[in-house]
Every structure is written in C-alpha cells, then in structure tokens.
C-alpha cells in the first residue's frame, strides 16, 4: 500500500496515469450524471485532482472545464492541490467537539508544524478536519487514511502519527 500511495502522490506525469483516468472514465461512461463518481475515483487514486486529469474528463465527457472546476471547488472531498501520502482527518463533529477534539487538532498542528488544510513539506501528511465520521460514541475520533481511531487523547494522537512516521521510514 505505501508504494502505491507514494506513486499516486507524485505528479500526474506518467503515461500510465492517463490510462488510469481513461479507465475510471470508462467505468462510468454510460451512467447519467457520471461526473461526480469519476471525480471521486480520480481524487481517491491521486489523493487530489491533477489539472491534466480534469482536462481529460472535460474532453471525454464533453463537459466544460469551468463546470468541472466549479464542482471541484464546491465539494469538500476534492482537492485541487496535491495532498500528502497520509491524510489525517480530525473529527470536529459535535460529538467529538464536546469531547475535546479541538485539542487533538491543536496538538497535531503543533506536532506537524502545519495548519489544517495544509500538507507537510515532505508530502507525508495532510491535516484536514471532517464533520463526523460516525464514531461519535467513541469520541473523539480521528481517521488516518482508511484507519479509524476512537477515544483518542492528545498524547495518543501524537503516538498514532509517530507510528505512521515509523512505517514510512522502514
């Protein structure tokens, strides 16, 4: 998984990436209203929406690029800038909020030296906030990539991130 993610993270340059985009577009080609599913898959694959991919969609699906960019900036899930290998989502839903998640966020911002919405220099981590991941009963919760952690305190959150740093340097 790490290599795959690392590959996806590098800029949209290689020929194979255009193939990936074509593949995704083809999956949904005949679906009415297929723009969102296509964009979601591309966003998931690259961790963001590279401009050439959007141009590719525009050509293939005959949708004006301006419309695609409007959709891209409307929905929170999409990113128009490259994001890190590990996307950290700190839940700021009400359940987590009253259980102290703002402090988890502060702790992570200090630890990583970035504000939420930003990516570390080395492209390892992007810090984002999310409004509820459905683990409210185990608040406060965070998600790193696809892994969800419940009942996290500020000290633990630091350790969780360390474990990703260690895996990265293996």
């Amino acid at each position: 998984m790490p290599e795959e993610a690392a590959r996806a993270r590098t800029a949209y340059a290689e020929v194979t990436d255009a193939d990936v985009v074509s593949g995704i577009i083809n999956t949904y080609r005949d679906e009415p209203g297929n723009l969102l599913p296509v964009m979601l898959d591309i966003n998931r694959h690259f961790n963001w929406l590279p401009r050439p991919a959007l141009e590719h969609i525009s050509d293939e699906l005959k949708i004006p690029l301006t419309e695609i960019l409007r959709v891209a900036s409307f929905y929170n899930a999409f990113s128009l800038t490259p994001r890190g290998k590990n996307i950290i989502n700190v839940c700021l839903g009400t359940g987590c909020f009253v259980k102290g998640s703002p402090r988890l966020l502060e702790r992570l911002e200090r630890k990583l030296g970035i504000k939420h919405g930003e990516t570390t220099e080395d492209m390892e981590f992007t810090l984002e906030v999310v409004r509820c991941i459905g683990c409210c009963a185990l608040a406060p919760a965070i998600r790193v990539g696809e892994a969800t952690y419940g009942r996290v305190n500020p000290d633990q959150v630091s350790k969780i991130i360390d474990s990703y740093i260690e895996t990265a340097s293996l």
Partner: peptide, 25 residues
C-alpha cells in the same frame, strides 16, 4: 449507489438530486 463528496447541504433533497445529476449540490 451514489457517493456524496462532503457537502452538508447535499442532504437537502433538491441539492441531493442536483448532486446525483452530477452538478453542484
């Protein structure tokens, strides 16, 4: 199945429909 893309307003029914149609919600 259609996946949302992280916009609270898309829970509102007319916005949700717009979103399924592939538009801004």
């Amino acid at each position: 199945i259609r996946e949302g893309a992280g916009a609270f307003v898309c829970g509102e029914e007319t916005a949700l429909i717009a979103s399924i149609e592939g538009r801004v919600g």
